[in-house]
Design a protein around this nucleic acid. Structure first.
Length: 480
RNA sequence: GGUCCUAUCGUCUAGCCUGGUCUAGGACGCUGCCCUUUCACGGCGGAAACACGGGUUCGAAUCCCGUUGGGACCA
């Protein structure tokens, strides 16, 4: 038996925007595939579009992939401008010599040719074909140019592109998710593979990179499905082996279109900024188009790797369900110990830092079960930090009289700080009549954690202070 | 417009390959009850789907064909 080809997969983002949720999800599936098969996961930066590429975006992509825990075995090194891995460089802009080599090869072998057709002319032809109900496709006019003609036009400075001679053949490949898929290459027309000898276009560069990086499986979004036959044809012309393909269903927005900013945040950065945990995002993205055999919904990275099977991925697009994301995040937050939550909450409530750790942890404990996102923490706990402002009438439980409420609050003042005695008192007097005004006095809110939870985190003096203020409010003192 | 992909509750999905165990299972959301001073958490229930039409078969969510819907790509 021949030795098994090593499994090598890649994610190849363009740094033309922040790390997109779709890109992250593709990265995750590649990562899961690599991890579950003992293969390598490679990061390649497709930065040939100089105008739209931006180093800040590249940084964002690298940082957030790392934050998600999707670390790569080969690709750009983290801080330094170096690479990990033997197949570098992993930036397309640093691989131009390779592309040039293969473009020349195709040109030399007469498998590609220079095309000088003007854009306007092409567009006209396209419209004409369209109006006849035909598939728009390049006529192949420049195929027959002689090398002398080409030379003279190049020296004359005419604009050109390089086209690949599309064979007339049926291209069939096996998709790991969709099974056999076939296209008629004859319908495609001669593909532009490069703007010039140094400037390859996407479908060409990908083929070269995947070959040179020895990629065994190409796992990518369904939006690339129609690119696949084009790439296969180029591979064949160059004598490359064909990798295995898997096309993932797309993540859709509410209107069933491609995820767009109009509907929800599309970048990982935005979710991170809102306080979604990396574990949440990983778990959630894994379930967008995939499902384990059993009914479990909350799986750790290790469990995901163990269960992952690319054959089980869905064929149809999946709508991004924000409510479920929130629920999942809440589940993960609940499982985190308070002490681990503290540093994560700091960016959302910097004042936590000024508190004794013990107090900070108590505050966190009151909010933990109520958090969907870490960013919820601020509004949920503001009253701990600033004296609440509220109407005196809020202190009255149902139809309890003012005087009675004042009396109850005064009794509480006597009983402080003994929570047990206050509880006994509440049992005797009526829980609502005692605990409601106490809670409102402490929180200033109709909705909040319970009074004893709040007192745990508040200084005893502060507790007394707030109760006194409540009594004053009820008496109508100081115009309160 | 052409090509390709695709179709189970509102949403994510199990089941489909290897037809009967499916009066279709789970989760989110929605909703009723319980717990409870409020909210949240938690617990127990409920409503909610096999796109449609043909065929194959004793029998189809499951296999085949078509229609319709949705999506992607091409410029």
């Amino acid at each position: 038996m021949p030795p098994k080809k090593p499994i090598r997969v890649r994610i190849a983002p363009s740094p033309t925007g922040y790390l997109h949720i779709g890109t992250a999800r593709t990265a995750l599936f590649n990562w899961l595939f690599a991890k579950s098969q003992g293969g390598s996961f490679i990061l390649r930066i497709e930065d040939t579009d100089l105008e739209r590429s931006n180093i800040a975006f590249e940084k964002d992509i690298i940082e957030n992939l790392r934050w998600l825990g999707l670390t790569w075995d080969e690709g750009p090194a983290l801080e330094k401008s170096e690479y990990i891995g033997d197949y570098g460089p992993y930036h397309q802009t640093k691989r131009l010599a390779s592309y040039e080599k293969y473009i020349k090869k195709l040109l030399d072998e007469n498998l590609a040719y220079y095309c000088f057709c003007a854009k306007e002319q092409l567009e006209e032809e396209r419209q004409a074909m369209l109006s006849q109900g035909m598939a728009p496709k390049y006529s192949g006019r420049c195929r027959s140019l002689t090398s002398e003609q080409v030379q003279s036009m190049i020296t004359a400075g005419d604009n050109y592109v390089i086209r690949f001679k599309m064979p007339s053949a049926q291209i069939t490949f096996k998709d790991m998710i969709r099974g056999s898929v076939s296209f008629d290459a004859d319908l495609m027309g001669d593909l532009v593979i490069a703007k010039n000898i140094q400037t390859p276009l996407y479908n060409f560069a990908v083929v070269i990179d995947d070959y040179e990086m020895n990629i065994s499986h190409v796992i990518r979004g369904e939006d690339h499905l129609a690119n696949t036959p084009k790439q296969i044809v180029i591979q064949k012309a160059l004598g490359f082996n064909e990798p295995q393909y898997a096309h993932l269903p797309l993540i859709l927005d509410k209107e069933r279109g491609k995820m767009s900013k109009r509907f929800a945040a599309t970048s990982i950065k935005e979710y991170r900024d809102q306080g979604y945990l990396p574990k949440t995002l990983i778990n959630f993205m894994a379930f967008l188009g995939w499902h384990p055999q059993d009914d479990r919904e909350i799986l750790s990275n290790e469990e995901l790797i163990k269960e992952f099977d690319i054959k089980r991925v869905q064929k149809a697009g999946a709508i991004f369900n924000l409510e479920k994301l929130d629920w999942l995040n809440a589940q993960y937050i609940k499982t985190l110990p308070d002490a681990e939550l503290l540093p994560l909450l700091l960016p959302f409530k910097p004042q936590l830092k000024d508190l004794p750790e013990r107090t900070a942890l108590k505050i966190i404990a009151t909010a933990k079960d109520r958090l969907k996102k870490l960013s919820d923490f601020k509004s949920l706990t503001d009253f701990f930090f600033t004296m609440p402002n509220y109407n005196a009438s809020l202190l009255l439980w149902k139809n309890t009289a003012k005087d009675k409420t004042i009396k109850n609050l005064k009794t509480i003042l006597q009983l402080l700080p003994d929570a047990l005695e206050i509880k006994q008192f509440a049992e005797k007097e009526g829980r609502g009549e005692v605990l409601w005004p106490l809670r409102v006095a402490l929180s200033g809110k109709d909705i909040s954690p319970g009074p004893f939870e709040i007192m745990e985190a508040l200084e005893e003096n502060e507790t007394k202070n707030r109760i006194n203020i409540a009594i004053k409010k009820l008496r109508g003192d100081n115009g309160l």
